[in-house]
């Protein structure tokens, strides 16, 4: 279980607070207006930012003193998810051998398998610049798949893709979640992303990370603040 307990941290102009728990293997959408602190929340879980108060626990263990690379977390950022000067296979190999050493034949086979799962067979020798936007995104997902950490954080990695490609990527994420059994948190602006992908939704607004709610329940009867964000008339 991932617990965020009594978290509080100052952002420019307001404080973000949160207190919630998520189950392993869940798919969670984090939605809310821009500037509300969605990415900040992910940074706190990943260890890139320290909260002013409170802590993050995984399976009952506090993570406060654990640096990002040692947390049970892998993360996809808005951009720069692959090193542009290394081939896709080399990028993925680094997920298995963070010391940069040569991958064993066994590990190379795992890289190939991950490429295949993501529909990138035979593209391992290409550099990211020679891949399409969708292929790059799937390559990054393959990297996360290989890291095989129990928590996956997605910070709007598909924001730059067109609508059709984005839906395709959401399905790919769903597949990654199923294959890896990881807890997946994905930040999104778009409620339809949440409907497509997430079992539960964490709504961030007004300086508060609201406790997760079933996606269907939330959107069928949104609270007033979310209703305003979605642009719906109260009814």
């Amino acid at each position: 279980m991932l617990e965020v307990k009594g978290m509080r941290l100052a952002l420019d102009g307001f404080a973000l607070e949160g207190d919630f728990a998520l189950q392993p293997g869940e798919t969670i959408a984090v939605i809310g207006p821009s500037g509300a602190g969605k990415s900040t929340l992910l940074d706190v879980i990943a260890g890139f930012r320290k909260p002013d108060a409170g802590q993050v626990l995984w399976q009952g263990q506090g993570l406060s003193d654990v640096p990002p690379q040692a947390r049970p977390v892998s993360m996809l950022f808005q951009d720069q998810n692959l090193f542009p000067h290394l081939t896709l296979a080399r990028n993925l190999g680094l997920a298995l051998r963070p010391d940069g050493g040569r991958v064993t034949p066994d590990e190379a086979a795992r890289v190939e398998a991950a490429l295949k799962t993501m529909g990138l067979e035979g593209l391992g020798n290409r550099k990211p610049g020679a891949l399409s936007g969708g292929q790059q995104a799937r390559g990054a997902l393959a990297r996360v798949l290989l890291q095989a950490r129990p928590i996956i954080l997605l910070d709007e990695p598909f924001a730059a893709l067109g609508p059709a490609l984005r839906q395709e990527m959401l399905d790919a994420v769903t597949e990654v979640a199923q294959v890896s059994g990881a807890l997946v948190l994905m930040v999104s602006h778009d409620p339809s992303d949440a409907r497509r992908f997430a079992r539960r939704v964490v709504y961030v607004d007004g300086g508060r990370v609201h406790a997760p709610v079933e996606t269907k329940v939330l959107f069928d009867d949104p609270p007033p603040a979310l209703r305003a964000y979605l642009g719906q008339e109260p009814g």
């Binding site: 990943a46 890139f48 640096p67 990002p68 690379q69 040692a70 977390v73 892998s74 993360m75 950022f77 720069q80 998810n81 692959l82 090193f83 680094l94 997920a95 963070p98 010391d99 940069g100 990297r143 890291q147």
Partner: peptide
Amino acid sequence: RLAQTIGLT
């Protein structure tokens, strides 16, 4: 951050 999330030495 990418290096950190991969855990590069």
